[in-house]
Design a binder for these strands. Structure first.
Lengths: 160, 160
DNA sequence: AGATGTGATGTTATACTATTACAAGGTCTG
DNA sequence: CAGACCTTGTAATAGTATAACATCACATCT
């Protein structure tokens, strides 16, 4: 057991193997290649279950014998983001494994400003934004929704 | 007349002077100082009415005789963001003058991936996120909502 | 088999974004 | 005037990201 990004414990080993299996079958179905670097990159993000910077991931990859230059990490991360297995957290310039792999979703995140934990929630884009886009004639392709605040454990009234 | 970030024409000169006046009175009321660098920084963002990178702003400040080192721009920009006169666009690592100065709001943005124009809309955080936060016990302090897509002028069916 | 195309990886170099730390000036107040 | 506080300037560095080019593995076509 471990502390999950949803601020609640979960069976982490199971969640890792499920995510990897989902990634494999999805790639196969799409004709995309889950190569060793890419697979290892996803594993690293899943193991930590935290938002990680590209250079943190790169350091881990390097110790595993992969290339140690930035493009190695960025390419793998971008591939995983494109495939929907990993999300980018704009606010943190960081990456996190998707918590709901295999489902087509529009992710939203809750970022604790104290401990840095990031939790993923599904989200419909806000009403205000949807209306504004419609009336402005703007065609939305993707949304970034990130809330900053305090997770349960970091709130003043949290148990010590 | 000019092209406004709301993808519609507007009286730009009036919007600039209004925004500056609002900033002045708000600062006075709060005991904050709208110093020359800070005021000029706001003017630059208002003139362009585009999302600008900190280094673009810095270059403009430098030609106006202010310091030419990054902290000069970042300090002024952060001040303006703190005061609510300027918003940061996380997705672009850029800054844009607030389109509704003086109102307390939770901004949302529409970013055109073709021409880079950014429009601001007021937004209530999405239902999904609000629910997730409530059920997770997460206390939201601030939200980042940024939609990418195509503005009216950049859509395939736009007039040539 | 050999030629060719495609996608993935590795490396170099560089560009872009942002902060820390310290020095110096201004203003306000005790 | 001394001290506190805020603002600006500068130097140095840290952190994030991409462009450009070389190479390799594999598949396909002739």
């Amino acid at each position: 057991m471990n502390h999950h990004a949803d601020f609640a414990p979960h069976d982490h080993a199971a969640c890792v193997t499920t995510a990897l299996r989902t990634a494999e079958t999805t790639c196969t179905a799409r004709g995309a290649q889950l190569t060793p670097v890419r697979r290892r990159t996803l594993e690293i993000l899943l193991e930590n279950h935290l938002a990680m910077g590209a250079y943190d991931v790169l350091a881990r990859l390097a110790t595993d014998g992969f290339g140690a230059k930035p493009p190695v990490a960025y390419r793998a991360l971008n591939f995983l983001v494109d495939q929907g297995f990993v999300h980018r957290i704009e606010r943190l310039n960081a990456f996190i494994a998707c918590a709901h792999p295999g489902t087509d979703h529009d992710p939203a995140f809750m970022i604790c400003r104290t401990c840095g934990t990031v939790a993923e929630a599904d989200s419909a884009p806000g009403v205000g934004l949807r209306d504004s886009a419609a009336s402005a004639g703007f065609h939305i392709e993707q949304t970034v929704v990130e809330a900053q605040g305090l997770c349960p454990a970091c709130q003043p009234d949290a148990a010590p």
